[in-house]
Amino acid sequence: MAEILVLAEHQDGEVKKVTGELITLARRFGEPAVVWAGPGAEQGQQRCAEFGAARIYAAEDAVFDDYVVAPTAELLAELVRAKAPALVLIAGTGEGKEIAARLAVKTDSGLLTDAVDVTPDQDGNPVAEQSIFGGSTVVHSRVKRGTPIVAMRPHSVTPEPAPGAAELSPVSLAETADGAKVTGRVVAERGERPDLTEATIVVSGGRGTGGAEGFGIIERLADALGAAVGASRAVTDAGWYPHQFQVGQTGKTVSPQLYMAIGISGAIQHRAGMQTSKTIVAINKDPEAPIFELADFGVVGDLFKVVPQLLDEIGKRKQL
């Protein structure tokens, strides 16, 4: 059975959820083999095994963390040459896409990004489903040259457990690859709230909140619902809320069970990041706001009246 290479996303030995998603997808095509770039493979072994990884190619060198993208792409290229996998799956984060890009050049292979699913065609070759033009068109594409490389949009599929040995197989880089050096890392505070891209409920606020102080009402509603907080670009540009919470084309793509857009007009760039949400609720004082075209439920009204009342209602129901 052909091997399928899955590049693990991990931090401090902890395997990110998307890796389970990729291993789950890999099982449709062959034997999942995880590629672990950087220290901590042993700590991640158990998680990879739970989703059915047959082995882990572990290159536990600090170079992968210390240099931007290039060493990881080189490691994958060397493994592609040595193992001739039927497919390489990479998380479609900003960095993941760049790794995939360089791997595609190195191996002269076709690359598909932003896939929300990958399924085998009659011959067992991968066909990726992509959602383009801000979600208005669904495309199925395939790779016609080299080793198929697919960058998957995180949280598109549900990770399903399956038994696997996740046998550790140490590997090392044959060629040196460096380039741009990482000299520092700054992690923004998230607090106690769930991760924006993984949350079941996202409550987002826009320019209608009027300022950093007004935006506080979005946080209060999010906390009442156990939700993550999101923001439109108008809000992050104005500095009312940090950039990493921006939802949209140049922010995060989210697809929660419930998305609440409050004081957000629903510009196409914002919609690109949220329109695959299961249920959408909008609160906006302008009945013409395009966000209402997407909303399953909408209230035309002043958010500073509607949201406090909603908070009261949630409070009452919690007491019951």
Binding site: S136, T137, P287, G301
Partner: peptide, 28 residues
């Protein structure tokens, strides 16, 4: 090109939702 489109389709628009005007009970 290293890739090719197999097929594509426009996604049906979302079903229209319920939009109400706030008459003092929007939050409720």
């Amino acid at each position: 090109a290293g890739t090719e489109v197999v097929d594509f389709a426009e996604r049906p628009p979302r079903q229209a939702g319920v939009i109400v005007k706030d008459d003092g009970d929007g939050g409720v």
